[in-house]
Amino acid sequence: MFCRLLRYDIRKGLISDYKKLLIVVAISVAFCIQFRWEYTSHFSSLSEASFGDIIFFAFSGMSEYTFSPDQPFLFPALWVLLLVLPMFFVLYYPFYDLLGFGKNVLIQVGRRRTWWLSKCAWTAVYIMTYFLIIYAVTAVFCIVMRIPLSTQISGETHEMVAMKGYNPMLNGEGHLVEFMGRMDLQLFVLPVISMVALALFQMMLSLIVSPIYSFIISVGILISSAYYMNPFLIGNHCMTQRSNLVVSNGMDIKNGVLLSLCMAVFSIVLGMIAFNRTDVLSQPLRDE
């Protein structure tokens, strides 16, 4: 029953609603073009750039912000946009489904727990699809621009980001210290699992407060992550510039994975308890 319900959720909440994901394609193309423009304005050609460079650039976020009158807070707009968008996309489906024939489905399923777990799995699938689209569009851009599909971060990208005021830990050869292998986790795994965890947290909160307030809280967590370099603010783990692979006092990947797993499990369990006690009314749950 769970698998069939998840398939229903994917068909209804993802495949039939594919037009939303075209926005992700457009944004991905836009940041690839922005990368190209910034890169070529600093360096003569794209010969040293790689697929990893573009992803590093997109999820670079910002270096640690220290309040000072001389240092204005430069809002990391691209990073915020890339992470807020999936939170918005997964916000309403689980609850608006209950306003339509999702009510029939819930009754057919017969168990609230199964319904909730399917919505959690749907959320994870949605977020993974979102990131896959970003990576796929970037890969296509690389193929078109004849940029190698390597995940190695080039020295030029370090320089380019350094020009924005961040101090990378460079070795004697001008490359970032300790990038090998673990940077792939930072680029391709940590943003996905962190955002899955935050989306599950948001869905759980939607039951307790309401979808719109839970979205505001998610956005608040992401923006606070930009202001404060704190491992408990999950957005910090999605900024490549704040990884301990890049700066000495940066975020540890293991801690990021652990925090995400704890947050996800907490949200799933608490949400299950809350949904068991929730009345399915004619408006999105607590919004009524």
């Binding site: 029953m1 069939r4 399923v109």
Partner: peptide, 24 residues
């Protein structure tokens, strides 16, 4: 219950086929 809400982009048959796919 109240106004039925189905998937806009599906036909009537497609909607019922999706709905009944859960229990099979």
């Amino acid at each position: 219950l109240e106004n039925p809400a189905f998937i806009d982009s599906y036909s009537g048959y497609g909607n019922l086929e999706l709905l009944t796919s859960v229990r099979g």
